[in-house]
C-alpha cells in the first residue's frame, strides 16, 4: 500500500488554487489523482519527467495537463513530490499552475529547499497529512 501524504505548503497551495474564481483550477485534484492512481511505487520512483534530485529519496517535478481547461502538460500544472526509496511513501510538496491568475513559471532552488525543510520538520512532528488518491485527495485520519 502506498501512502500519499502532504505538507502544509502543498495544502495551502492547493487551497489557493481551489479558491480562484470561476473554478479556473478546479481540475487540479483530478489531475493529481489520475497521475498516481493504480501506479506502482516503482513507477512513481522512476518517473523520468523531471527528476530534480536523487539521493536517499527522489524529488520529482511532474508535469500535469489540465484537461478541464484543455491544457497540455506544458501549460497545465507542476507537482513537486518526494518519494522515499525504502518505504512506499509519496509526499506532495507543492503544486502550481503554468497559466492563469496564479501562474508560476519556475520554482527556484531556494523554494525547493524550504519545502524539503518543511517536510522534515512536519514529518518528525507527525504533522504530515495522509490523502486518499482514489477520492480527490480527501484527507484521511489515522
Amino acid at each position: 500500500m502506498i501512502q500519499f501524504v502532504s505538507i502544509s505548503a502543498f495544502r495551502a497551495a492547493l487551497s489557493d488554487l481551489l479558491k480562484v474564481r470561476h473554478g479556473v483550477y478546479s481540475g487540479v485534484q483530478e489531475e493529481i489523482c489520475r497521475a498516481f492512481q493504480n501506479a506502482p511505487i516503482e513507477q512513481i520512483r522512476s518517473n523520468r519527467d523531471m527528476v530534480l534530485m536523487d539521493l536517499d529519496s527522489v524529488t520529482i517535478k511532474l508535469r500535469l495537463p489540465d484537461k478541464r481547461q484543455h491544457l497540455s502538460k506544458s501549460d497545465g500544472y507542476r507537482l513537486i513530490y518526494l518519494v522515499l526509496k525504502d518505504m512506499p511513501v509519496v509526499a506532495f510538496l507543492t503544486v502550481y499552475p503554468k497559466r492563469g491568475p496564479l501562474q508560476q513559471l519556475d520554482i527556484p532552488d531556494a523554494e525547493l529547499k524550504e519545502l524539503v525543510e518543511i517536510f522534515t520538520i512536519e514529518s518528525r512532528a507527525r504533522q504530515i497529512v495522509i490523502h486518499d488518491i482514489n477520492d480527490h485527495l480527501k484527507e484521511i485520519q489515522l
Partner: peptide, 30 residues
C-alpha cells in the same frame, strides 16, 4: 531547471544535509 537543480542544488550544503536527514525519520506509523 538545469541551472537551479543540476548546478546550484548539488552545491547547496544545507539542502543536501536536509535531504540526507530524511532517512533518519520514522515513517512506519503511517
Amino acid at each position: 531547471d538545469i541551472v537551479e537543480f543540476r548546478i546550484k542544488a548539488p552545491k547547496d550544503e544545507e539542502l543536501q544535509q536536509t535531504l540526507a536527514s530524511i532517512k533518519d525519520i520514522d515513517f512506519s506509523y503511517l
